[in-house]
């Protein structure tokens, strides 16, 4: 393998297996994500799609196999680097308690996020996501599911990272917004995307789609 192609490899899952409570749900999963590649992960719920994304950030450890980020094994040291470089957006963004404005400021006070919150950008992304200005003064916990979801997307965009893990990020949006968000992300050819979504708006002919299946379900099941 040439050095160049190695450098292009951002994320690599090597023979990764997932078990929930001693039950194998996925095994021998392999996937290489190159820079600027956009990949859609599909598969029935409970198969471990979300877990695959979490593993990349060191939130759970694979029961078997290895995960690489920039050719380095994800471990207790490298996971902190991955967390600074990858933007992770979840279905039910939970920022905690307090005004949206204060919660945003807290995120941009983290030492890893050297840049301050750019208010110009904030306004423009909010317009894009059809979020009202006064939402900043509201309590995060009182927002609707769709609003919370958009705040999650907003934060990811503001963090200005170029690798995105998007886990059902448009599930609570209306059709028009689903399309708008998906189009926005998919138009950026300089971004690397790993998308989990049941929404059709994310489907593109050119996009690589990975279907996750439980392999040898019956035999791999460990009896209690």
């Amino acid at each position: 393998m040439s050095v160049e192609s190695l450098n292009n490899e951002l994320i690599k899952y090597e023979n990764v297996g997932i078990s929930f409570e001693n039950r194998k749900v996925l095994s021998g999963f392999n996937l290489t994500v190159k820079k600027n590649q956009r990949i859609l992960l599909r598969g029935k719920s409970g198969i471990g799609k979300t877990t695959l994304l979490k593993m990349l950030l060191g939130f759970t450890k694979p029961s078997e196999g290895t995960i690489y980020f920039r050719n380095q094994v994800i471990d207790s040291r490298t996971c902190w680097e991955a967390r600074k470089e990858i933007a992770y957006v979840v279905q039910d963004t939970d920022l905690g308690e307090g005004k949206v404005k204060n919660l945003l400021n807290e995120i941009f006070s983290y030492r890893a996020n050297k840049e301050e919150l750019d208010h110009e950008k904030l306004r423009s992304f909010m317009r894009e996501l059809e979020l009202e200005n006064n939402i900043l003064e509201e309590n995060f916990q009182e927002l609707s599911g769709g609003e919370k979801q958009r705040i999650g997307i907003l934060i990811a965009l503001l963090l200005n990272r170029d690798i995105y893990l998007l886990d059902e990020v448009t599930s609570a949006l209306d059709a028009k917004l689903k399309k708008k968000v998906a189009d926005y992300f998919l138009a950026r050819e300089d971004w690397t995307l790993l998308v989990i979504s049941h929404d059709r708006e994310w489907e593109r002919d050119w996009m690589e789609t990975i279907y996750l299946e439980t392999r040898s379900w019956e035999t791999s099941r460990t009896s209690p």
């Binding site: 939130f59 983290y110 890893a112 996020n113």
Partner: peptide
């Protein structure tokens, strides 16, 4: 908690 780690929090 995990989400804030993913946002770059120590």
């Amino acid at each position: 908690y995990l989400y804030s780690l993913s946002l770059g929090a120590g």
